[in-house]
Design a protein around this nucleic acid. Structure first.
Length: 801
RNA sequence: GCCGCAGUGGCGGAAUUGGCAGACGCCCAGGACUUAAAAUCCUGUGAUGGCAACAUCGUACCGGUUCGAUCCCGGUUUGCGGCACCA
């Protein structure tokens, strides 16, 4: 009988669909398991082979857990607002909603063709008004709690297209589309106060099971640092507050540096005799991104303020003030005290501008480089701090600053508030009305969803406003409070909005009265296992944790954290070893692989390709190994003999394989689980027969990985029911052990021989056996034995001198 | 530049609380089957030397700790992800 994967896969996909085999049950008495994959952005290109990797992985986990008796919710949806669809719409003149609908259809069909067991009854779409009603609702709650506010922020502005650009659309400082000049334009933007949750976002990582690199990256991104604010006087009487992590070096502060955007510069405009030079520098800085500005490799630049100087609060000496683009307005207070002796950026800057470098911590050579060690140095040239350690000096100077009312200890975070406005069409409208008299007025909740209106053009207006601002009928409304003429907010939300809470909606996707019912949230949340790409660690993952914490605070959800466990998959690279992209022409389309080899082979290959957590290179040739394996699986039906259970020759191997597959699935080691199944099938073929009982177990182990072929053979061999709904096979720990084990015999760390010893033999017995082995006996004869090392089941090492 | 991760045969990868490096698969070579080819099956396959048993070397590079290092420490280097309006 030929293995006709096309017919088999179609047959089972139809059965799963029609019978809704994988729909989560609303029986809240059963133990639940809620695994989650990141819902895709439905792009026009369709799926590429990178998508199925995490999907198949969680599908395998879900199928296995279902067989272990859990009520499983494995949902899928669409993160469908966003820039590429909007740009496509502008180019083709098609409504983004139409494009989105088509793309979703395509994605859904492709995903179904892979035999993934998503619960299609719970699909969500962030662009559906029934969904974004609740995205808007959450925004209103944030606004009411003061966590959404407006602030002047810079946006990228293409001077030629006259359009606001995303950072991604700015390539090398020019517009990606027209190569026109890009400048930073200041605009009033909605912001979300994620920084107020900074400490909790760090602290609560202790209570969740995230892979270490994700935790570390989030902690570093939030970037907590302890230090002090210090107030420097100026000859103008104004105070410049700086944040420093090294208040101990205050005596060594020989100049100050302000960010080019610092507000005091405008105030002092009249006093500065080199105003033109300053203006030119500010303009140049405005064209650079923060990323370009902080690159240390480049030469330090800056301008000294002529006409205003600062006063070091502890030495009371006058020191010059510079502006330089290596100081960012967005971090700390936008101003620093420069201590060139003990900060390498300040050191470079001081060298270039011929500024004095004073040593205040001894231990290095400040003629050669800044001395930044905080463990070993001793304070010098620092008045009352002299002779102290850095740590002690920090304490004393902080106390001095507070006592003299010149600053205080403080904590600063690198995390910045979230810029939440987009001057774009294809996003959720922000449900706020601006009234001259009443300020920003939230739309009444009864008016949600605030529908995204139809427009003529999806392009940003000539003055950088959202396309919605052209709709005067829509924009001009009476103020809900005082009735005076007022205007709607015309910016839309970023794509991150809809994806910050979608996992809640899956719990109860059709609810029109709430985000989801209390009972559904109580039962399903938190997500038990969320797998996604490392590239989402610092934005989506952090944003959604922030929203969830906010929803916890206002009593909508009852868990502090949305996800119990977070794992991360590696990317699938093209055959040339680099990221797949249309421009490189190395994209592999899963449809073609499915057509040629079948979904089961694709699934198996994607899981076998390598370490799930690392990037892997696609290989058209290697798929053949998985194809051969499935052909051998299909062939098992031909060598069935005997109905019974495990045969003597294979019993131990079956127990070991069950154990290996059971454990490896939970620890994301799909590749070695498959290798174990391959080893087992090799053993079966060597024996040339398999009992019905053995085949049954083999199929159950295989079922999560390659469900179609497993179901088909299961059905043909006739035990009845579906493989996917059987119980997961168990194993006996005792039967996983062999009677004897091969150990290595070493002399002073060099392997000299290998022998078999009883698995349960003790140290003395094994060492005696080792010494009697001819290679060892000869080597230790007449030598002085210094040490005997025994590692059970591994080796004996006899150290001689 | 900053933060995070990684570097193992011709290739994808396995093995780490420090204990036999290279499981499993691909490619390749030889053999079986076939008129022949494909498919399939069997055998071999890190490098060097040797008829062989075997020996020596070998986990990016340099150094350290240890009876023993792919694993721990210090340094270097290369590649990948992120850097806040791509998703």
């Amino acid at each position: 009988m030929k293995y006709d994967f096309k017919a088999i896969e179609k047959k089972w996909q139809d059965i799963w669909d029609e019978k809704k085999i994988f729909a989560a049950s609303n029986d809240y008495s059963k133990p639940k398991f809620y695994p989650l994959v990141e819902f895709p952005y439905p792009s026009a290109q369709g799926l590429h082979v990178g998508h199925p990797r995490p999907y198949t992985a969680m599908d395998i986990v879900a199928r296995k857990r279902r067989m272990q008796g859990y009520n499983v919710l494995l949902p899928m949806g669409w993160d469908a607002f966003g820039l590429p669809t909007e740009n496509y719409a502008i180019k083709m003149g098609i409504h983004p909603a139409v494009v989105t609908r088509e793309n979703i259809e395509k994605f859904r069909a492709q995903i179904k063709a892979l035999g993934l067991n998503f619960d299609w009854g719970r699909e969500v779409d962030t662009t559906d008004p029934a969904y974004y009603k609740w995205t808007q609702w959450i925004f209103l709650q944030l606004f009411k709690k003061g966590l959404a506010y407006k602030k002047e922020m810079a946006v990228n502005w293409c001077t030629s297209c006259k359009v606001v650009l995303a950072n991604e659309e700015v390539v090398g400082g020019v517009c990606e589309r027209c190569s026109g000049e890009v400048v930073r334009k200041v605009k009033s933007q909605w912001m979300l106060g994620i920084t107020q949750y900074a400490q909790r976002l760090i602290d609560d990582l202790d209570g969740v099971d995230y892979v270490e690199r994700v935790k570390t990256q989030q902690i570093n991104w939030i970037g907590r640092s302890e230090g002090a604010n210090a107030d420097f006087g100026t000859t103008e009487g104004d105070v410049i507050t700086v944040f420093t992590t090294r208040p101990d070096t205050l005596f060594g502060a020989t100049y100050m540096v302000l960010a080019p955007e610092h507000p005091l510069l405008e105030k002092w405009a009249g006093k500065l005799t080199n105003a033109a030079e300053i203006k030119a520098y500010q303009d140049a800085a405005a064209r650079k991104s923060d990323f370009e500005r902080t690159e240390v490799a480049k030469d330090k630049t800056g301008v000294c303020l002529d006409g205003v100087t600062a006063i070091n609060p502890v030495t009371e000496k006058e020191i010059p003030i510079y502006i330089s683009d290596y100081v960012l307005a967005s971090y700390g207070t936008g101003a620093i005290m420069a201590v060139p002796g003990h900060d390498s950026r300040d050191w470079e800057f001081a060298r270039k501008f011929g500024l004095p470098i004073i040593e205040v911590v001894s231990g290095g050579d400040i003629e050669k480089e800044a001395f930044v060690d905080i463990e070993t140095g001793t304070m010098v040239n620092s008045g009352f701090l002299d002779g102290l350690s850095v740590a002690e000096a920090k304490k004393q100077i902080s106390a001095w600053l507070e006592d003299n009312d010149k600053g205080k200890s403080t904590v600063s975070y690198k995390l910045r508030d979230w810029v939440f406005s987009r001057q774009r069409y294809w996003g959720e409208p922000i449900p706020i009305i601006h009234c001259e008299k009443c300020g920003f007025v939230p739309l009444d909740e009864s008016e949600l969803p605030l529908m995204l209106p139809e427009v003529q053009s999806y392009q940003t207006t000539d003055d950088g406003q959202s396309p919605l601002s052209a709709l005067t009928d829509w924009v001009n409304v009476p103020c809900p409070v005082c009735g005076a003429p007022a205007k709607r907010e015309t910016d839309t939300m970023p794509q991150w909005a809809g994806s910050s809470w979608y996992f809640l909606r899956y719990c109860d996707p059709d609810n029109s009265d709430e985000i989801a019912s209390k009972e559904a949230l109580e039962y399903w949340m938190p997500v038990d296992w969320y797998n996604g790409g490392m590239e989402h660690t610092t934005l989506h993952l952090l944003y959604s944790r922030f929203w969830h914490k906010f929803l916890f605070d206002i009593g909508v959800v009852s868990t502090k954290e949305p996800y119990s466990r977070r794992t991360s998959h590696g990317m699938i690279l093209g055959e040339d070893g680099v990221k797949m992209s249309k421009s490189r022409g190395n994209v592999v389309n899963p449809d073609e692989v499915v057509r040629q080899y079948g979904a089961d082979t694709l699934r198996l290959y994607e899981m076998f390709i390598g370490d799930f957590e690392k990037a892997a290179t696609w290989s058209g040739a290697s798929i053949r190994g998985c194809e051969r394996f499935l052909a051998r699986v299909w062939g098992l039906a031909d060598i069935v003999s005997g109905a019974g259970g495990l045969s003597p020759g294979l019993e131990g191997k079956f127990h070991k394989t069950i154990k290996k597959v059971t454990e490896d699935i939970e620890s994301l080691k799909f590749n070695t689980a498959i290798a174990a199944l391959m080893t087992l099938i090799n053993d079966i073929y060597e024996k040339k027969s398999i009992t019905k009982g053995e085949l049954r177990i083999f199929l159950l182990l295989l079922c999560p990985f390659t469900p179609h072929i497993a179901e088909e053979i299961w059905e043909r061999m006739g035990p009845g029911g579906m493989a996917a709904l059987q119980s997961w096979p168990g194993f006996d720990e005792e039967k996983c052990k062999d009677d004897t084990v091969e150990i290595a015999l070493q002399i002073s760390g060099k392997i000299r021989a290998r022998i078999d010893v009883p698995t349960d033999a003790d140290r003395e017995a094994v060492i005696a056996l080792a010494k009697s082995a001819p290679e060892i006996a000869g080597a230790i004869d007449g030598k002085n034995i210094v040490k005997e090392i025994f590692v059970p089941g591994k080796l004996v090492n006899i150290v001689v001198s």
